[in-house]
Design a protein around this nucleic acid. Structure first.
Lengths: 166, 166
DNA sequence: ATAAACTTTCATTTTTTATTGAAAATTCAA
DNA sequence: TTGAATTTTCAATAAAAAATGAAAGTTTAT
């Protein structure tokens, strides 16, 4: 397998994985491409490599910037913007955990808290409350896990974590 | 807020969360409905409550059965099938972790292993290999985490885990 | 101020995914 | 067996999401 083949293979796989996690394929592919690019690259290079339109490239680049997964680089005497990916994969994991927590987990926790305060007159209501409370625990666990990842500045903390389960 | 309002609120929220995680809305709504139903319910009740077609209900019920998140119950003297959800939320988490690991993480690990064996003649190839190796570590971490959840038969193990990060 | 280089926006089109509903298949009681 | 009750399938349709590309907007050098 040549280097180029390997690169394409990786970009494709990463894109496929992403769609299963509710992230759009192109965004993941651009991210993959930038992760394996030694040098920052510009919009046209991305368009050409991935065979996508300018608008599409731009939109997804903007999203990746929002997520803090890639950065712009300005070259002296160049008008174009070049992009490069965060290369520290632990930082990527933290960034993603942080965003997903904010966008997804936090709102659900809020709804669950609201639902806990219904009147528990009937047995049915009590049953409902029990289910909600149980779910809260699992969501809380997920939330704690994400927080742990977010706050894990050091790798050793991660390895500590892994030890617990071995 | 009445019990019915709370129920609807929960079903809706759970559906919204699911779409962000690459799970279809209806499947999550059916699951939510069954989780908060004290009694097993039949296809018609699901169709009516969620305002969906028979085909749609059937398809998503089958998927939920595949995932091991719900069960069939046969009532004596009744032809219809009634469905009920797994009520142990830790078991749900384990089930989901197991399925996602099998369907998503394992294939990616395989691809990454393949990509590690390219020839490292050029500096470019070595750089590529480094990125792939780093990504493998993170994916491996995710895989270990899922495994930990899968194998956590006891709740205290989870609480041990949580302690590490507090 | 102008224009070239480049980026962003967004109405339209394409693609993908989910849903419908009616027909076919299955199950079971009589 | 027949047929009524119920489940499953699947081609057609609808809805949602992503992508296009051309036009509008910005920035910078001159």
């Amino acid at each position: 397998m040549t280097l180029d083949e390997a690169r394409n293979r990786f970009i494709q796989s990463w894109g496929t994985l992403a769609t299963q996690w509710g992230i759009n394929r192109t965004m993941a592919q651009i991210h993959a491409l930038l992760m394996i690019s030694p040098e920052p690259i510009d919009t046209d290079a991305i368009m050409e490599t991935l065979q996508i339109s300018r608008g599409n490239a731009n939109m997804n680049l903007r999203d990746l910037l929002d997520w803090g997964l890639i950065y712009k680089q300005l070259k002296l005497g160049e008008r174009r913007e070049f992009f490069y990916a965060e290369k520290d994969v632990w930082k990527i994991a933290r960034q993603v955990a942080k965003e997903r927590r904010r966008r997804e987990i936090t709102p659900v926790i809020e709804v669950l808290e609201e639902l806990k305060v219904i009147d528990t007159d009937s047995p049915e209501a009590r049953e409902f409350q029990k289910v909600i409370t149980d779910i809260s625990k699992v969501v809380g666990f997920a939330d704690n896990t994400l927080n742990a990842v977010i706050k894990a500045e050091e790798n050793w903390l991660m390895s500590q974590f892994l030890k617990v389960f071995r």
